[in-house]
Design a protein around this nucleic acid. Structure first.
Lengths: 342, 342
DNA sequence: TGCCAAAATGACAACGCTGTCAATTTTAAT
DNA sequence: ATTAAAATTGACAGCGTTGTCATTTTGGCA
């Protein structure tokens, strides 16, 4: 039942070291030998023992994904994107949700990377922005790739993937302004997250360019949740009855805003336009469907994983195929429309 | 930087075997010795090497979770529930989404369990219902726990956790009937899933008990998706204008039905009651909020993980704390109401 | 054909832990 | 105090691979 490298070696009548060379794609193995070995591997359905490889070679063939649970779709797309790369590379994925709030978070992470002898780590926001985490990983000499909200990748940079939320927000805002909106509210996500700041900055830049005065009372602090969307939408509508549009920091907040509008009997988009971010399945399942800025988390995840693998191998050459800056695209649906001249 | 068991042994001036005993909670270690060792462990911040433990002891300290992506919330709650148990037991979790449709799925799974030398596996529906998968795991001598839709656990049964969807559907249906509904449509989930059948059976039982004739034209085949909900709700409403209530096989379908009703300008719940299953965050974020049958996936996941760990250890005794049958509870919200006598 | 460097292969230790079994210490009963 | 039994501890092999280095084979060239 259990097939070891020795069995393969016997069947192929070579040494175990040669088998090892073949399964690791090491050079200087004659084609004929390699073929013999491959046939034996297939024949016996040999699976190298991960633990033994890890122990002997100190490569764990396992990478980790660390996240502080933003929303379910985000996390799942991330996982799936990374897993699809792992599959082709023969790696396994260990997931590690952790709470930003937790004081021991860094210690816990450290324990995890040391225990499992992870080959590398993909960090998603907001953990990817945490310098304590980064320092710890540098200390421990762990490879990592960070997914960050930011405008552009330094071409030298070998450990970051950027999502240009600034530009995305700028586009969303511009679109609304073109539709005639002048009083556009901004419902923030978590204050600590860089994506919130980037999106806010994009929104402000768009207003300024269009000569619209920035009204701080239209900018509400909140968090990336449905209920934050409900609350903040309610209060901004109550306080400013000239608001004609809302930019929500993600689709969940936007869905909350939609809910609030419904509660207050406000017609979307006739009386109020609402837009989100992320293009999560969510945004297609609300009524009306959400205008949003689309980012393919799964694609981003794949590129992050590829970058991680190329780092692990110490390859710089193949990096060129890897996209390091993603700019979300505006997807116009039914939750936004022309401003009502009233 | 790297701390091995030998370092700990030296510092505590005992043999490495004794250290091993202590960190594995083996019996027959004197308290004083154990304390000495623990102090050394703390002092050096020793983390046992998982790979070495795996190789030497053929315990991998890793369990797997296998799922065929139902909805995002389900998967994530499952992961979190299991992870919370893993944390206390010092295990890691490997996730393995796989597609039921994929012909090689069983082979792929086999490769995965053999490669990673998984200690055990949690199987979620519909994979938990797949006899090919089960047979393969039995062949490979892998421990597993299945989460299944079914009425009751055989007390002897040591590898299943049941969710009583039958009863849940029965309750939902009864509730609607008490509200005066007589023409209740049923929007099925995937035909192959046992949960669909169980829920359908519960629905039928309720109708029969209440002397309502079963109208097969009110029972629509579908799948567990928003769009299936939209389509099937549309067609059942178009075909039967006396339908006053819809039982959807999960919250996503229900949300789709809500969407369809909105499209058709049907007032919920005044003209039509709609209920779902699962009590996913979803069900609190639709308008109106969904009446649903609540099951705490996270709790179920935790019990599944506990059961798996107790199996792995060969313990039968602690099983008693583990709940093996869960019956979802009716949660009445705003998407259902009294039937309109028309 | 013979010789040599380069290429290919193999032997064997090592990775860090646990299992087995033997050696030692403690306990309790005489 | 003595002794056997029980409890505790330790020595050492082995888990299935990869790394290192030695050995064998190959191919090119005089």
């Amino acid at each position: 039942m259990k097939v070891t490298i020795t069995d393969v070696a016997k069947l192929a009548s070579v040494s175990i070291k040669t088998v090892s060379r073949v399964i690791n794609n090491e050079p200087s193995v004659r084609k004929a030998t390699s073929d013999k070995v491959m046939i034996a591997v297939k024949e016996l359905n040999y699976q190298p023992n991960l633990a033994a490889r890890n122990l002997a070679g100190s490569k764990s063939f396992t990478i980790g994904l660390v996240y502080d649970n933003p929303n379910a779709y985000y996390v799942l797309d991330m996982q799936n994107g990374i897993l699809s790369c792992c599959k082709t590379e023969g790696y396994e994925l260990l997931i590690h949700p952790c709470s930003y709030a937790n004081k021991d978070m860094v210690e816990e992470l450290k324990t995890m990377v040391r225990r499992a002898r992870i080959s590398g780590l993909v960090l998603t926001p907001p953990l990817s922005e945490n310098s304590e985490v980064i320092n710890m990983l540098d200390d421990q000499n762990i490879h990592y790739v960070r997914i960050l909200s930011g405008q552009e990748a330094d071409p030298q940079q070998t450990d970051c993937i950027y999502v240009n939320d600034h530009n995305a927000a700028y586009e969303v805002s511009n679109h609304l302004i073109k539709q005639g909106h002048k009083h556009i509210a901004f419902l923030s996500g978590d204050k600590g997250h860089k994506s919130t700041h980037e999106r806010l900055a994009g929104y402000k830049e768009s207003l300024i360019e269009n000569n619209i005065e920035i009204d701080e009372s239209l900018i509400l602090e909140g968090e990336y949740s449905f209920s934050s969307g409900v609350e903040n939408a309610k209060s901004v509508i109550n306080l400013n009855n000239n608001v004609t549009a809302i930019i929500a920091c993600n689709d969940e907040i936007a869905a909350g805003a939609l809910f609030a509008a419904r509660l207050m009997d406000i017609k979307i988009p006739e009386q109020l336009s609402i837009s989100g971010f992320e293009n999560s399945p969510f945004s297609r399942q609300t009524w009306p469907k959400l205008t949003t800025a689309s980012q393919s988390i799964e694609t981003i995840a794949q590129h992050a994983a590829k970058l991680l693998f190329s780092k692990t191998r110490g390859q710089r050459n193949k990096d060129k195929e890897i996209i390091k800056t993603f700019t979300p695209e505006l997807v116009i649906r039914d939750s936004t429309g022309p401003a009502n001249k009233s």
